[in-house]
Design a protein around this nucleic acid. Structure first.
Lengths: 123, 123
DNA sequence: TAAATAACTATACTTTAGTATAGTTATTTT
DNA sequence: AAAATAACTATACTAAAGTATAGTTATTTA
């Protein structure tokens, strides 16, 4: 098999799962929610308070998405009034390494950008 | 300092760099481009051939973004006609671990979704 | 009795991301 | 002489993501 075709299929094989992972994490709010819940179980309004500027609509939508992907568990506590607790599933916790790597690289990158923008124009 | 305030600031500290990293990788085309170049230096039209459905406009825009972030290097070879070669910088290669983790998790997740959708409805 | 808490949903809107299609300049191949 | 290659840019559009604002049901506190 010629190199370019081989590379092409290797390439495609890599892209699919990486995109799957990214779909879970991309967008403005999913990470903040995941990180917030990784510090402990929280209720809807507590998460909302922890994440400045998020609207109820976005929070509710993203929590539903995360729940559908089995990363977050929604528990209704039948008190009066009803209280809903969100927590990371053990499956959701398996994202830890991914998030760690993203944070490591992001920290490095932030330094790079800052030191570079000094030489050129401020961002 | 009370727990919730401490958690909140820890949380914020994590979110910033993770978002920085994600900004680099998110979108439909950045990853395919990065992965494609990680298999070897390529010219504009070669990348375009390797990534089905990408338009010239998107490819050109994303390459400019990646270049601005110092992940990709653009080299003009003054032949006739002019040829432009793109390559990963060593800094760009530092994304390798991040991409590996995303791929690992994405592979796991893909299996999870498939086995789960058998129980419920097909996707 | 009004405001606050709880966990949302509904509607309408704006912004950003991505697509479709065509055009540019210069050269080489058919 | 026409078509292909090379590496793009320009214009106009659609689709997806996100925002703003208000409303819901039931209960508790001021």
């Amino acid at each position: 098999m010629p190199d370019e075709i081989k590379n092409h299929s290797e390439c495609t094989k890599m892209i699919l799962p990486v995109r799957d992972a990214l779909d879970i994490l991309s967008g403005k709010w999913k990470l903040p929610i995941i990180i917030s819940l990784s510090f402990g179980n929280k209720r809807f309004s507590q998460i909302a308070k922890e994440i400045p500027k998020i609207t109820d609509k976005m929070l509710s939508k993203e929590l539903r998405d995360l729940e559908a992907n089995l990363l977050v568990k929604r528990t209704v506590i039948p008190s009066v009034p009803v209280v809903v607790e969100y927590s990371m599933t053990s499956y959701g916790k398996s994202l830890e390494k991914v998030i760690d790597e993203l944070r490591n690289w992001g920290t490095l990158h932030r330094k790079q950008i800052v030191s570079n923008s000094k030489k050129t124009k401020p961002k």
